[in-house]
Design a protein around this nucleic acid. Sequence first.
RNA 1: GGGUCCGUAGCCUAACCUGGAUAUGGCACUUCCCUCCUAAGGAAGAGGUUGAGGGUUCAAAUCCCUCCGGGCCCGCCA
Length: 575
Amino acid sequence: MVDFKKEIARSIVNAVPELRLEEAVGFLEIPPDGKMGDFAFPCFKLAALLKKSPVQISTDLQKKILLPKSIEKVQAIGPFLNFFVKQTVLSADVLQKVLKEKQKFGFAKAGSGKIMVEFVSPNTNKPLHIGHLRNMFLGEFFSNAFETQGLKPIRTELINDRGVHICKSMLAYKKWGKDSTPKKAGKKSDHFVGDYYVMFAQKAAENPELEQEALQMLNDWEFGKPEVLKLSELMNDWALKGQAETCKKCGVEFDRIYFESQIYRKGKEIVLEGLKNGIFEKDETGAVIANLEPFKLGKKVLLRADGTSIYMTQDIFLAKKKFDDFKGLKESLTVTASEQDLHFKQLFKILELLGFDFAQKCRHVFYGYVSLPEGRMKSREGTVVDADDLISELEALAETELVKRYGNEISEKELEKRKEAIALSALKFFLLKIEAQKDFVFNPSESISFEGETGPYLLYTFARSNSILKKAPKNLLSGKADYSFLTLEKEKEISTLIARFPEVLQNSLKNYSPHVLCHYLLKLSSTFNSYYHETPVLKAENASTVKARLALVKAVGITVQNGLDILGIQALDEM
RNA sequence: GGGUCCGUAGCCUAACCUGGAUAUGGCACUUCCCUCCUAAGGAAGAGGUUGAGGGUUCAAAUCCCUCCGGGCCCGCCA
């Protein structure tokens, strides 16, 4: 690809020998939308060096500069020197590349190796809710995006399958379940389990002794009482099976699953070793603690006075286990809500103090809370936005829209496929287009829209581009197009946007910010949709123009689809 | 009290990392546009002291400080 920035920078440096090439490249920026060109050089940067006013410098430079072949013209606008790229060079360069490489377009081979992404990580006492979905879509985006950069993602979740909260649903089932099963009750298995969790909370409100009974059950579980073990297996399986169905529906499957029940006692040896080496200390009660006050992370208990481990102990073990299980792991990423920020800061610091070389390879990405207009969601009170219910509601809405458009003309199979894709695109895009760190108030009554800045809008753009291609004469779809027929301002704008895709993607990933990619896709789509309305493609004035425009349309489609893939959204050929 | 994230039109949101030109879009609202490649679309209009106040700078939504408001967290829950 032509490196426009470098060519422009070189021409500036030729005119201003005091300036270094790398500096000039760094100073170049992209002007705001409008008629201000493709690249701008702010002349403030040279004011001190040349001892002249920025406006004077830009005027002088405009006259003095020798333009590279790829640049159409240069224009001094106030203190800015604006460069206009040659349309033909740009289009030919970008479109050829996209059409030739298709899915692989512009993806830098930044590295190789494995990257672990831990996400979703639910408890086994209830089905997934909208908070899990935000987590899931973020984790899936990171996995997909890393893959484009040449890294192999290992999708992982840590299942919280033990603890007193799990016992609560178990106890309720034992007392009032009467040997019912999800099948008998006609319920999705994780919902079946979740119902008993809610039931427990209701009964315990009248009957506080139930809390004690749940603790007793946990105790029995710890000591391996067969009856409790059997019950836990039964109910955990139900929960896991149901949750996995939801994940699969969303296009997410895991390569490796860790269970807390299998590791929660581990990590003690590592902590005791640290104690022996003076990294940790014992407090007056006999508990082992890590003093992280020098790092402004407070103090953290690692082992209780009775020698039992806590969550942190297990997490130290798990962090190490991941690197033991997957040799050559380049990075270990954990996605959770922001409430666990301190926990992970402490964990990573402890790993560092213990001298583990992988400490530097651990990352925590957190996202803001998803809450309801009336406040925080509470599973035990049943005030959650259930993932499956939400998806079903969106599918019903999508179906209504499809029936409105196609009536009986659409097959049952096609209807199913489209409504699912449309519903999931709306949901995923809705949760990914906003900066991950921001808290989120989900208002169910306002629901999720299919219009405006939405997933369906992107699907629609893709379907439209596809529709043109399908109707195009075959002979105009293959072979080399003459890109000099792309003379419209909007055509240049589209080419410029497409050219920017790899950079946008890298930026999006670097900051763990899927919203960057989302907004890029919206921009590309709206530009294309506007172009679509004002410019005929198939009925253009001559065959050469048709051919060139078809290439542009195809490149838009490829780019939108690439973007959707990375977001975990399935595109539809027809909508 | 300490830490942390956030604060941009009636509502939602981009740009903040890496300072730059009239602060990006969407929803809702007011008008238009289907004899034309899919109207889940397009065109136009209206809507702003970027929470407040200082500082740095030629230039601040962006960097620094103080304050205000909200979420989350703050050794033996996960």
